[in-house]
């Protein structure tokens, strides 16, 4: 019974984390058809930015709870700067080229950014752990949970909900849907597709940085953290169906809950969970759970 509860809560916490980390990737793919390998760098910059700013905040001796604002601020600053640099400075020159070429361009950007991180922050770790314990813990019989972890569930719901509203209930969302559906037609109707692309990419970048920023308090921020996230995010997005936000929700839930179940019941298979789930889902649903089959034109 307690094990079942642990699986549920651990699974939800991990799913929420996965969703926060992966949703930006999904959004960018959905709109721009770009599989952004540099998403891992955005995550890393978000984490480093957050750890740096939290450090400064605590050194200044301000009210501890305000440090959470630093996470948000770090994500906004890092995401916006890198998003604009990558999109305006690099990607717009390769729009219209083969999708794979664009993947490689983002991969090259990722390699470069890995060393840029090292040049800025060095190789020693940064911590934002000061604020991890601020929210206290919750005890359920033998189990103790960190409230910060539990709060991630709320954050994921908030991000998912806001995105859903933004896409389905705002004018900007309508434009976005039009561009997703048919880019050329939207252009013909006078939608400024270039601007939609820039805004989407920057938003996706901020979300990527947000994933890193909110992970920073839980971890030691070190070189190489970005690499690990890329494949996780890809897997979640593929399982859910490329470019679908509800898909990213379901993808995260499936991976998160399966992983928690594996850890508690059969730890030996933990390593295989994500790829096993991905293979199974694709075998049953070749387009992912929420993916749309591309129309075939003769």
């Amino acid at each position: 019974m307690l094990t079942a509860l642990a699986i549920l809560i651990d699974g939800l916490v991990y799913s929420s984390w996965l969703f926060i980390v992966a949703v930006g990737l999904s959004l960018i793919f959905g709109v721009m058809k770009i599989l952004n390998v540099a998403h891992g760098s955005l995550y890393a910059f978000g984490a480093y930015g957050a750890a740096t700013m939290v450090g400064i905040y605590f050194d200044a001796g301000w009210a501890p709870l305000g440090s959470f604002a630093m996470l948000l601020l770090a994500a906004l600053v890092m995401g916006a700067i890198l998003g604009i640099v990558l999109e305006r400075g690099l990607l717009r020159f390769v729009y219209g080229r083969d999708e794979v070429i664009i993947v490689l361009v983002t991969y090259a950007a990722f390699l470069i950014l890995e060393d840029v991180i090292k040049l800025i922050w060095g190789v020693d770790p940064y911590y934002a752990a000061q604020l991890y314990g601020l929210l206290g813990m919750t005890e359920i019989s033998l189990l103790v949970f960190s409230n910060y972890d539990l709060a991630l569930i709320g954050l994921a719901l908030f991000i998912g909900g806001s995105l859903w509203l933004a896409i389905n209930r705002t004018r900007w969302g309508k434009l976005l849907l039009a561009v997703i559906h048919d880019r050329e037609m939207s252009q013909a109707f006078g939608i400024n597709v270039t601007r939609v692309y820039t805004v989407t990419f920057v938003l996706g970048a901020v979300l990527g940085a947000l994933g890193g920023a909110f992970t920073a308090p839980m971890i030691s921020v070190t070189p190489g953290i970005g690499v690990e996230v890329i494949i996780l995010a890809f897997a979640v997005v593929v399982i859910g169906g490329m470019g679908s936000v509800p898909g990213a929700v379901i993808g995260s839930l499936i991976v998160g809950l399966s992983r928690a179940a594996a850890v508690h019941l059969l730890p030996e298979i933990e390593l295989f969970v994500i790829y096993g789930v991905m293979s199974l889902v694709l075998i049953v649903r070749p387009q992912g759970l929420f993916g749309k089959t591309a129309e075939k034109r003769i």
Binding site: A6, I9, D149, M218, I219, I225, P267
Partner: peptide
């Protein structure tokens, strides 16, 4: 009681820590 083997560089151990707690 339990042998946990998280992936190297995983960085996220919440499920493993729960399992360690339950193993007492």
């Amino acid at each position: 009681t339990t042998e946990q083997f998280p992936k190297i560089f995983a960085g996220q151990y919440s499920s493993e820590i729960s399992a360690l707690m339950l193993s007492q």
